[in-house]
Design a protein around this nucleic acid. Structure first.
Length: 760
DNA sequence: CCCGCTTACGTTTTT
DNA sequence: CGTAAGCGGG
């Protein structure tokens, strides 16, 4: 071995624990890595890939599927450092259609990888490689048209509902025909019908939605064995991160690739599966060893992120879920602040208190970028945003009204889509009257009738507008103006990069004038357009047409979390619990911990959905390194009504030993210290429960008194002794958490790793 | 065809 | 409550 190689080996293995090392070393055959929260799985994965390369595997033979583009970028960076790769090729992943180049592995989300495959090979399915990608907004517009065509009333089947069903079908890799065969009810027949028509329309527009990207790739593999075989030979080493959140279509994709060499390494944590609603199938990870009987299973159980109180609390919450693989997370950070459970009067107070807590921690020296407020639904964000503004705290919100979802931004993008592909009817309809050209529903109706009668596309009809009989001359002229603009820029496509093209277009459309309208809002919209132009400049160095397609591609596939890397400024982050997966912060505040909101009322009465809600809570809690605060409001203004809800049932599971309860008013602070959420719901009103306060205080003293209790391994039935409560019997055990019936009559819950218990 | 007002409806969660 | 679609008068 050369000295460089030795040095690389040291870098790769030097800092790993035994389990991580095992994960890195087992490079051949199927490997299942069960990686608990904060267990250094990204580290294991990057080191594993670096090791593969160091062992002589060509980088392009390695495929790694990540959950976000941000994760892919970060991992590439780390691999570069491990291998001392100095050259800049961070952009390689997106643009090249030739996979067998580059000094870094192919990394990206399922969606971005599939797009690259399709751009390269989809012509083998008889489709055009310049397809556009429809987002949910576009989908909804198209579905509305489809339902209209099929004479399905909105009351019978709402576009969103139809799309939700279709999404289900697609994630299960069912085509319209199969959906039809499955449909038993009248309603599902209609859905299947809509599905079929929807796909036809997509195809006519040369468009795909997100799910199609995966499905069409699977279909391509299926129908063109030579293509599949080529990719199997290219990517001999496969990795999938966050495997617990893959759906069936994604499962098929990766399974087909793995068929030949079987070098598939999947990483995940069943306790963090939170995307069931969009078809993620937790069985993919739970049954991996059935699919691959020879799989090696590695568990990463050491947590490098959080303090013991945080782990204990999170563990206690997740322990209530059934059918979990055995897992015992541990940390060397045995000391840490208590989890704060904070009761407030109402949602306004909640926002104020949360911001105050953030400022508190900030004063102690933790930057805002290290802090986050997590909520269950986007709708909750507004009050926190307002509280930030009042307090003068810089913040950034992920999700909600997305930048690329803004009307003015989508308008510009729609122009670009149409210039690239005039058959994109959804985009065409979006912009044909923007800015106003007096082409309204009446005119469009006539155009569409003309198109239908001659089976022309809308675009061809526009080109042929002089022959549309029942339009007056003025209208024809205005349509002509529009077509000319599109044709003009279509020609410029070969000459101008996207930023130049778009700038000229925006000038020609006089967007600044009609966007601004002299209002504050208008000013902001214009700024958004300029911001978009700035983003485009990143693509200036590419070939003109490639610069446009690359730009549109990246825009279509950016996730909210990808944007976290943008902007270096120090700001507090606000986002939904779903978006926080894979991230970590010094200080985490989870708000709205109330029955009906979290767990959400739509998920409260279904066993499996409720389990998923619990996992969402687990994910949120385990993002915290040092401080964790859970908040709930006694009253909340929801849907125009003031509702008083019970604290979330998840709070019931927190062991008293690691919790400090705070409240707007002390009397009610302890009111809910005992009794289940369900009981409190039934009882309606909260009941003062002062006598338990002293028990809590007593208990806290026990904490400091503890030192040598970690070795205890009590199981159900074990007799134990506690310095304050005396002797008792373990009556239940869930991981680190035990319930103890004391001989004196009291029943208490403890965390084994913390409580001063002695097995006797 | 456009604008402004009224009404209906909604809130899970996302690539 | 807040927003977005929908309607009717200009």
């Amino acid at each position: 071995m050369t000295s460089v190689q030795t040095e690389q080996q040291d870098l790769i293995f030097g800092s790993l624990n035994d389990q991580q090392r095992a994960a890195v070393e087992h490079i051949n055959g199927p490997v299942l890595i069960l990686a608990g929260a904060g267990s250094g799985k990204t580290r294991a994965l990057t080191h594993r890939i670096a090791f593969l390369i160091q062992q002589g595997v060509a980088p392009w033979q390695i495929l790694s599927v990540t959950f976000t583009n941000k994760a892919a970028t970060e991992m590439k960076e780390r691999i570069k450092n491990l291998l001392h790769l100095v050259e800049e090729d961070s952009d390689f992943g997106f643009r090249s259609t030739d996979f067998k180049t580059g000094r870094l592995p192919v990394m990206g989300t399922f969606h971005s990888i599939c797009v690259r495959i399709l751009r390269r090979d989809i012509e083998k399915l008889g489709r055009d490689r310049n397809f556009v990608i429809y987002d949910s907004d576009d989908q909804e517009k198209l579905m509305k048209q489809v339902l209209k065509e099929l004479h399905i009333e909105e009351a019978e089947l709402k576009p969103r509902a139809a799309l939700a069903y279709i999404g289900r079908f697609k994630s299960e890799a069912l085509n319209p025909k199969e959906a039809q065969e499955q449909a038993t009810s009248d309603r599902m027949q209609k859905v299947a019908q809509a599905y079929a028509r929807f796909q036809t329309r997509l195809r006519e527009a040369n468009a795909m939605d997100f799910d199609d990207l995966i499905l069409e790739t699977v279909r391509l593999f299926h129908e063109c064995p030579d293509v599949l075989s080529r990719y199997q030979e290219t990517w001999k080493y496969l990795h999938v991160d966050e495997y617990q959140d893959t759906n069936h279509a994604q499962y098929l994709f990766i399974t087909m690739l793995a068929q030949k060499y079987g070098n598939l390494c999947v990483i995940g944590d069943p306790d963090q599966s939170i995307y069931g609603f969009r078809g993620a199938d937790i069985r993919n990870i739970l049954e991996f060893e059935k699919d691959y009987p020879k799989a090696i299973r590695i568990k990463l159980e050491r947590n490098y992120r959080s303090t013991q109180p945080i782990l204990t609390a999170a563990d206690a919450v997740i322990a209530a879920n059934p059918n979990r693989p055995e897992k015992r997370m541990w940390t060397e950070r045995t000391e840490g602040p208590q989890i704060i459970v904070n009761e407030v009067r109402d949602e306004r107070r909640e926002a104020e208190e949360a911001i105050r807590a953030v400022q508190d921690i900030q004063r102690q020296g933790t930057a805002l970028r290290e802090q986050v407020i997590l909520y269950r639904t986007h709708a909750q964000s507004r009050l926190f945003e307002e509280a930030c503004m009042r307090a003068g705290i810089p913040y950034r919100i992920l999700g909600g009204v997305k930048f690329y979802g803004r009307k003015e931004v989508k308008d510009v993008l729609a122009y670009l889509y149409v210039i690239l592909n005039p058959n994109d009817t959804v985009s065409m309809l979006r912009i044909i009257n923007i800015p106003s050209r007096k082409i309204g529903d009446t005119t469009l109706g006539k155009l569409q009738a003309h198109a239908a009668a001659r089976s022309l596309s809308l675009w061809d009809t526009l080109l042929d507008v002089q022959n549309v009989t029942d339009l007056d001359g003025g209208t024809k002229a205005r349509i002509d103006t529009f077509t000319r603009i599109i044709l003009k820029y279509k020609e410029l496509l070969a000459r101008d990069v996207v930023s130049v093209l778009a700038r000229d277009l925006i000038d020609e459309l006089k967007m600044e004038d009609w966007l601004k309208e002299g209002t504050q809002e208008g000013e902001e919209r214009w700024l958004n357009v300029q911001e978009l132009l700035t983003v485009m400049r990143k693509y200036d160095s590419l070939e003109p047409q490639v610069s446009l397609t690359s730009f549109l591609e990246e825009v279509a596939l950016v996730s909210e979390v990808d944007k976290l890397t943008e902007g270096r400024s120090d700001a507090l982050t606000l986002m939904t619990l779903h978006l926080c997966k894979g991230l970590e912060f010094e200080h985490v505040i989870i708000v709205g911990c109330e029955e009906g909101l979290f767990p959400h009322s739509n998920s409260m009465f279904d066993k499996e959905q409720l389990e998923e809600e619990r996992r969402i809570m687990y994910v949120g809690m385990t993002r915290a390194r040092t401080w964790l605060r859970l908040m709930f409001a006694q009253n909340r203004f929801l849907w125009g009504e003031n509702k008083s809800g019970a604290p979330s049932r998840f709070l019931d599971d927190l062991p008293d030993a690691v919790v400090e309860r705070r409240s707007d008013d002390m009397l009610s602070a302890f009111a809910w210290a005992t009794g289940s959420a369900e009981q409190r719901m039934r009882g309606g009103k909260l009941e003062p429960f002062r006598q338990h306060a002293d028990v809590d205080i007593e208990f806290k003293q026990d904490m400091s008194f503890d030192d040598a209790s970690q070795e205890n391994d009590a199981d159900v039935g074990s007799r134990i002794e506690h310095p304050t409560f005396g002797r008792g019997t373990v009556i239940a055990r869930r991981g680190d958490i035990v319930d103890i019936q004391f001989d004196g009559g009291k029943k208490k819950t403890f965390a084994l790793s913390i409580a001063p218990l002695k097995v006797i």
